[in-house]
Design a protein around this nucleic acid. Structure first.
Length: 739
DNA sequence: CAGCTGTATCTTTTT
DNA sequence: GATACAGCTG
């Protein structure tokens, strides 16, 4: 039986059948994008146009990859395990695993997460003359990541015309950091995307190997690709141009991590032969919801534009609620969840509550918990970010890759074995002089004169313990190894005894959960006859997205950020915090691009809803533990009043009641204006590098500005006393000095 | 070296 | 309102 395309509409069918050459599918929200992509893949294989091994498919989450794979499986009932499908990060990790040696890494390299990166940066800047009290390792990490996302190298930064003090140090930090990572046989998240391109540039034969292997390349959510991802794909397909990308410029929400909208806007310039298909029929949302979402996103300038329509009924109006404060907002949501359940027979899993920042989840969680509404929270406190899990993972990383000194330092004194910072520093110094790895230096600790024999004995014992596990790794299954490890290192004992009963139980339960997930991983991979090594498990764990760990089958209300909601759908959606400076959220360098991205974020949220959409804002909201009054979001003014049903939990009268409070124009002005650093005509405007004068501290130079307006925190280095102070602009009585 | 205590910073979104 | 870190004490 051959594949039946009757389940598709005409445009979808055309997009499926156009197999050769570059294809751009512009797929509006809810237009059956995933379905089309799935059929296209199935079609290629079913018609024997391509073997599974010749196809590369990039999805946005691992969950999406899994689901797509099982859908294809259902459609054509063929073995598709040779198909490469996954996120950019996991596909790159897989490729680099194979080719690591050509890059000066070994196959068992470790993937560093943000936490590891920060530790590595701390180590690196401690050897450089970077003023550490000015530039935190965290700040440097985010700058470095941004540079890498833009595919900039240390040499490029040296040529950059930047006056920001940190950029003076960035090239050195960058070089040293990469060197340190290589010594640790580790790659960070950004390296995963960059290194394949580097590899292809330096080894044309390797590029050729993959370019000719992958005859057909698919990229989902193309609007969220960054420069590194774009170039990688471009290199892979430049010969055959069999590339199919799917995306929606209105759902581009990752500009802040380097995603470049131009990748999709310029697709037909990059590939002049491109065929373009527009999927404009929305099957997901009722008409009122779709109309409202459309009218919001129409305010954006930077878009191709499309006419998303639906055959569905009008449905209910969108409910807008003005709450007294964030607690009232949460209470209101609880009430409406009950309404939905009793009047519309919804179950918990039909419902999602979305917000702009993770911090907003706390109040919501408490309200749901108090009212016995079960919920799942996506993101926020990630399972694999918990201390007990991270520690065990660090042990596993060391076992797999003993060069990984970041992980080594994390666990060398956990559980406590009396090996402190001083001893570690001595061993590190020794390792550096001898030019050996930290772990190997531990084996030779007896050669270090300044370490006492008693201390040496402890270090040697630790070294032997790890060596023993390294030996066991090839003999035991992953689960056996982890269970031996947790008992022999004393981790299990530590968590059973060192905490109160409640905490102890939950930590031990988490560790057991880790055992389960390792077992599950091995079983699943064994079924597909794939690698079940510890390395493979660690890779999977490192590259999990928030949504990947979400159990969408369990009957619970889902709480997540608007970002995490991309690609999902729910019968009922609540979007909270529609306030200025929350949605849209403002940054120091507010510009039109960022405002439009915030608008798209709301659009993404609204289009998740199938039947009922609730919007809310709070007149006052607690922030930094302080209650602040808010201004309703300017996006609310962009919603057609006739589609709304307004209610209020506050006494406020007049314009505020309609969710307005002040004119849209004023709000837009305030969005851009709010920030001291972007003001022009203000003589109290400080720039980085600006010389200033203070009555008590004397002359100084501005090193950084945080926040905005009168409340901006200004970091100043006062030359005379050589001290660095953080001052609040409002009170500081600082004056700018002309150059 | 370990454990305690006070303080700074955090809250944008994520692989 | 938590958490990570620095700095101090035993």
């Amino acid at each position: 039986m051959s594949l039946n395309l009757n389940a598709l509409n005409d445009e979808q069918k055309k997009a499926v059948e156009a197999v050769e050459g570059p294809v751009l599918i512009l797929a509006g929200a809810g237009s059956g994008k995933t379905r089309t992509l799935t059929y296209r893949l199935a079609y290629l294989i079913d018609k024997k146009i391509a073997k599974p091994s010749e196809i590369l498919a990039v999805t946005f989450t691992n969950k999406a990859a899994r689901e797509m794979k099982s859908r294809i499986d259902e459609l054509i009932k063929k073995d598709i395990s040779p198909l490469w499908i996954g996120t950019f990060h996991s596909i790159c990790a897989r490729l680099l695993r194979i080719e690591a040696e050509n890059l000066g890494f070994s196959r068992n390299y470790t993937i560093y997460d943000v936490d590891d990166q920060v530790r590595a940066i701390k180590k690196v800047i401690s050897t450089l003359s970077v003023p550490q009290q000015l530039y935190s390792a965290k700040l440097i990490q985010s700058r470095l990541s941004r540079l890498k996302n833009q595919l900039l190298y240390p040499d490029d930064i040296e040529n950059l015309d930047r006056k920001d003090g940190l950029y003076e140090y960035m090239p050195d930090i960058y070089r040293e950091y990469q060197k340190y990572l290589q010594e640790n046989n580790a790659l960070d998240f950004d390296d995963l995307l960059i290194k394949p391109t580097e590899l292809f540039d330096n080894h044309p034969e390797i590029k050729k190997k993959y370019a000719s292997k992958f005859n057909y390349v698919f990229v989902d959510e193309y609007q969220d690709t960054n420069k590194a991802q774009y170039l990688l794909i471009k290199k892979l397909v430049e010969d055959h141009e069999n590339i199919c990308v799917v995306g929606d410029e209105d759902q581009s929400i990752y500009g802040w991590r380097g995603a470049d909208l131009n990748n999709i806007l310029n697709f037909s310039k990059d590939f002049p032969k491109a065929k373009i298909y527009k999927l404009e029929e929305n099957y997901r949302s009722n008409k009122f919801i779709l109309d409202a979402a459309n009218s919001v996103v129409q305010h954006n300038q930077e878009r191709i534009g499309k006419n998303l329509w639906t055959n569905r009924d009008d449905g209910d109006r969108i409910k807008l609620y003005a709450s007294k404060d964030d607690l009232d907002e949460a209470k209101h949501i609880v009430e409406k969840i009950h309404d939905e359940m009793y009047t519309k027979k919804r179950s918990f899993k039909d419902i999602a509550v979305l917000y702009r920042t993770n911090a907003q989840s706390r109040v919501l969680e408490e309200a749901l918990h108090k009212n016995a509404i079960s919920y799942n929270i996506v993101g926020s406190i990630k399972f694999y970010d918990r201390k007990e899990i991270k520690d065990i993972i660090a042990y596993l990383k060391i076992i797999v890759n003993p060069a990984d000194s970041i992980s080594l330092k994390r666990i060398v004194n956990f559980p406590l074995r009396g090996i402190g910072d001083t001893t570690i520093s001595k061993i590190e110094k020794f390792a550096e002089i001898e030019g050996i790895k930290l772990f190997d230096a531990m084996g030779r600790v007896n050669d270090i004169a300044s370490i006492s024999p008693a201390m040496s004995a402890r270090v040697v014992e630790f070294h032997q313990l790890i060596n023993k596990f390294i030996g066991l790794n090839s003999k035991l299954s992953a689960v056996e190894l982890v269970s031996t490890l947790t008992s022999e290192t004393g981790i299990m004992h530590h968590y059973k005894t060192e905490y109160d009963q409640y905490e102890s139980e939950s930590r031990v339960a988490n560790i057991k959960e880790l055992f389960n997930s390792i077992e599950q991983f091995c079983e699943e991979r064994a079924k597909e006859k794939k690698d079940v090594s510890l390395t493979a498990f660690l890779e999977e764990v490192s590259l999990l997205t928030d949504v990947d760990t979400w159990n969408s089958d369990s009957n619970a209300v889902t709480l997540m950020t608007l970002h995490a909601a991309k690609g999902l759908e729910f019968k009922v959606v609540f979007i909270t915090g529609l306030e200025m400076n929350l949605l849209p959220l403002q940054r120091n360098s507010a510009n039109i691009r960022e405002l439009e991205e915030e608008r798209r974020l709301l659009y993404v949220g609204m289009t998740r809803a199938e039947e009922n959409l609730y919007l809310s804002y709070a007149v006052t909201r607690r922030k930094y533990n302080q209650s602040q009054s808010t201004i309703p979001s300017l996006f609310l003014d962009e919603l057609p009043q006739e589609l709304l049903e307004f209610s209020s939990g506050t006494e406020q009268k007049g314009a505020a009641k309609k969710g307005k409070g002040r004119s849209r124009k004023k709000k837009i002005e305030s969005y851009f204006d709010h920030h001291g650093s972007s003001q022009v005509s203000d003589d109290m405007c400080f720039k980085i590098g600006q010389p200033v004068y203070h009555a008590t501290f004397g002359k100084g130079q501005v090193l950084g500005i945080e926040g905005s307006g009168d409340k901006a925190k200004i970091t100043v280095h006062f030359k005379d006393e050589d001290i660095v102070k953080k001052l609040i602009k409002q009170y500081a009585n600082l004056s700018a000095v002309e150059n």
